[in-house]
Design a protein around this nucleic acid. Structure first.
Lengths: 199, 199
DNA sequence: AAAGTAAGTAAATGTTTATTTACTTACTTT
DNA sequence: AAAGTAAGTAAATAAACATTTACTTACTTT
């Protein structure tokens, strides 16, 4: 049997993220993707059943998977609250500014019904994404250092400003002044922590 | 001259938002839209130059415009900081849960390059969106009640958790337990304010 | 080294796409 | 009430779409 050419699979994924990031999910077509990846359309259908199947697997298995890894690097669910949150913030910031094309697809996860439903399903089926963060939050609720909000609410309060700041980082990249720096991210993280910590 | 049928224009916009919300921006086609709005495709092109022109005008002029109005209702830029932020939070929450289809397109504004660029352009050209909020923040930086962050950073810290919570409100709508209530929103708002206020 | 096989290609499939053409309708102006 | 006109329609256009067909390639197994 002729063996798979893994470089081609990789190219398909990489180029797809590039097109989504530059032109938008709504402008990604299988033929455009095949041409740009220097591959026959048929080659994409060896691994993926359909366009939807491809997008879901790209999102869940590839992008979300390695995003999670980047976010949780050197994070331990038994960390001190401020230390743990800061670790996640800096990990996330560094990962995303070096993976702009992945970030673009992650953002579509909030708007596209296809990707959004796929995420919910995967979250139930294969165990929660970012499970260590959930355990970490539960532990700190139990010890009384933070208020007892549902964990989705904690996630919104603690991490959604960060994703907005990453967006702004990319917006500012095309302008002379640079505003969103690691230092700014760190200060914002402290601001968020201050709001959530019990006195 | 035969006069325009304003109900048809309205139907086109309403149905477009519905399709985007239910099936995604990537599944909105002009023919599908025309059929669903009970209109000839040509009718859409009387008012709009192209599909892109339609989407941009729907996003900027219709959706963002009335969203801004909803958010700023009874808001005054000279309000006390906590009072002003809370007014905006509750206005936003109430507006968005009653305008789910608009919320869907607003979310695409963060992911779709077409809409994102249109927003940046409009923000420069026709004066900043949410200008009263910017003035409000500037004033409270000047009086020393909050730290001197750039206003985009303040926006991220103060309001992005709220949009995530609205998303969760819709997710939980399809489940038995209701978690995101006005009371929860109000408590989250206080948490965010606590982090940002100087001691 | 020949046979077997999945990977891979190029070209074709039928459908859907955005947009236009050719025409009709319904109202305003005279 | 007749003429003029933009709004509106239904059907057509050419391009692009997702996916498949028919075929070739390159490797493994024997």
């Amino acid at each position: 049997m002729r063996p798979k050419n893994l470089e081609k699979e990789e190219a398909i994924r990489t180029i797809a993220l590039q097109i989504i990031s530059d032109e938008g999910l709504e402008n990604l077509s299988m033929q455009k993707l095949a041409k740009a990846a220097n591959v026959s359309p048929r080659t994409i259908y060896i691994k993926y059943e359909s366009k939807e199947d491809f997008l879901i697997k790209l999102f869940i298995d590839e992008v979300l998977g390695s995003y999670e890894k980047g976010v949780l690097e050197n994070f331990d669910e038994n960390m001190d609250f401020s230390e743990g949150v800061k670790k996640i913030w800096m990990n996330t910031f560094r990962y995303l500014i070096h993976n702009r094309h992945s970030f673009a697809l992650l953002q579509y996860g909030k708007s596209s019904p296809l990707l959004n439903k796929a995420f919910q399903k995967a979250n139930i089926k294969q165990g929660q994404f970012f499970a260590p963060i959930h355990k970490f939050l539960k532990m700190h609720v139990a010890t009384g250092s933070i208020r007892d909000f549902p964990s989705d609410v904690h996630r919104a309060l603690l991490f959604s400003p960060l994703l907005d700041l990453v967006n702004e980082y990319f917006d500012y990249l095309e302008r002379p002044e640079q505003i969103i720096t690691e230092k700014m991210i760190s200060e914002c993280c402290e601001t968020v922590i201050k709001g959530i910590l019990k006195d």
